[in-house]
Computed example of a mutant assay.
Amino acid sequence: MNNKQVAEQLLKIHAVLLSPKKPFQWASGIKSPIYTDNRKTIGYPKVRDTIANTLVKLIKTKYPDVNAIGGVATAGVPHAAIVADKMKLPMIYVRSHPKDHGTGKQIEGHLPENAKVVLIDDLISTGKSVLNATKAVKKAGIDVLGVAAIFSYQLQDSEKNFKAADVKFDTVTNYSTLIQLASDQGFVDKEELALLKKWRQNPWNWN
């Protein structure tokens, strides 16, 4: 999907920051003209409701056989909880690693027999974290229909990683939609828009 309303809200509440001329440094070492913190969305009731409604629509359209919702810890969990509530479906959440105490669970919650799960995350960059969660859920014998997220950077690595893992994914909005909207609304000028487009093509060598 390329929902402009959600993209506009992310810009408005500064969940997404654009700085092509003074890029941010990611933990991976990538210098990026964009920084995304979708955790901010849970502090804005109207924004999180719009996101949840759009996720519900996406899931019903793309994954009509779904009968359970999963949240990827930590940022995907609140959105998964709201979506599961709206859809009246059971929910699980998936830790990044199994607990090192107690029963050592990585997956929390309860699912019906023959569960068909859609996992929800807040952001797709390379896809590695949500694919690790997907792998854990599949290992537990649970059918994962696909992944739904709020936003994707649309990096080539993510496409390759999801394809290699044979996992479908969809997002509410994406990088192309957001940067064009940012340009249309004066958040960035033409030169900055060109840099933003260049980054997506080659995140390691663009500036």
Score class of each variant (00 low, 15 high):
Asn2Thr: 04
Asn2Trp: 09
Val6Asn: 01
Lys12Pro: 01
Ala15Cys: 10
Ser19Cys: 08
Lys22Ser: 15
Trp26Cys: 08
Lys31Ile: 04
Ser32Gln: 09
Ser32Phe: 12
Ile34Leu: 10
Thr36Ile: 14
Arg39Ala: 03
Thr41His: 06
Gly43His: 03
Gly43Asn: 09
Tyr44Met: 00
Pro45Ala: 02
Pro45Trp: 01
Pro45Glu: 00
Thr50Ser: 12
Ala52Ser: 07
Ala52Phe: 02
Thr54Val: 05
Leu55Cys: 12
Leu55Phe: 05
Lys57Leu: 13
Leu58Trp: 15
Ile59Trp: 07
Lys62Phe: 08
Pro64Lys: 00
Val72Ser: 14
Thr74Asn: 15
Thr74Phe: 04
Gly76Leu: 12
Gly76Gln: 12
Gly76His: 09
Ile82Met: 11
Ala84Gln: 09
Ala84Asp: 13
Lys86Tyr: 09
Met87Cys: 15
Pro90Glu: 08
Pro90Gly: 15
Met91Arg: 00
Tyr93Glu: 14
Tyr93Ile: 08
Val94Asn: 07
Arg95Thr: 04
Pro98Cys: 06
Pro98Gln: 07
Pro98Met: 02
His101Met: 12
Gln106Pro: 02
Gly109Glu: 06
Glu113Thr: 08
Ala115Phe: 01
Val118Thr: 00
Val118Ala: 07
Leu119Gly: 14
Thr126Phe: 13
Gly127Glu: 09
Lys128Phe: 14
Lys128His: 05
Val130Ile: 12
Asn132Trp: 11
Ala133Ile: 00
Lys138Tyr: 02
Ile142Asp: 00
Ile142Lys: 01
Asp143Thr: 10
Asp143Cys: 03
Leu145Thr: 07
Gly146Tyr: 01
Val147Ala: 08
Ser152Phe: 13
Leu155His: 14
Ser158Tyr: 07
Ser158Val: 03
Lys160Met: 13
Asn161Pro: 07
Phe162His: 11
Ala164Pro: 06
Ala165Pro: 06
Asp166Val: 05
Asp166Gln: 07
Val167Thr: 15
Lys168His: 09
Phe169Gly: 01
Phe169Tyr: 12
Asp170Glu: 14
Asp170Arg: 11
Thr171Trp: 11
Val172Asn: 12
Asn174Glu: 13
Thr177Gln: 11
Ile179His: 04
Gln180Lys: 05
Gln185Pro: 00
Val188Lys: 04
Asp189Phe: 04
Glu191Gln: 14
Glu192His: 05
Glu192Ile: 03
Leu193His: 05
Leu196Gly: 01
Leu196Lys: 04
Lys198Pro: 06
Lys198Leu: 06
Lys198Glu: 13
Lys198Cys: 03
Pro203Arg: 09
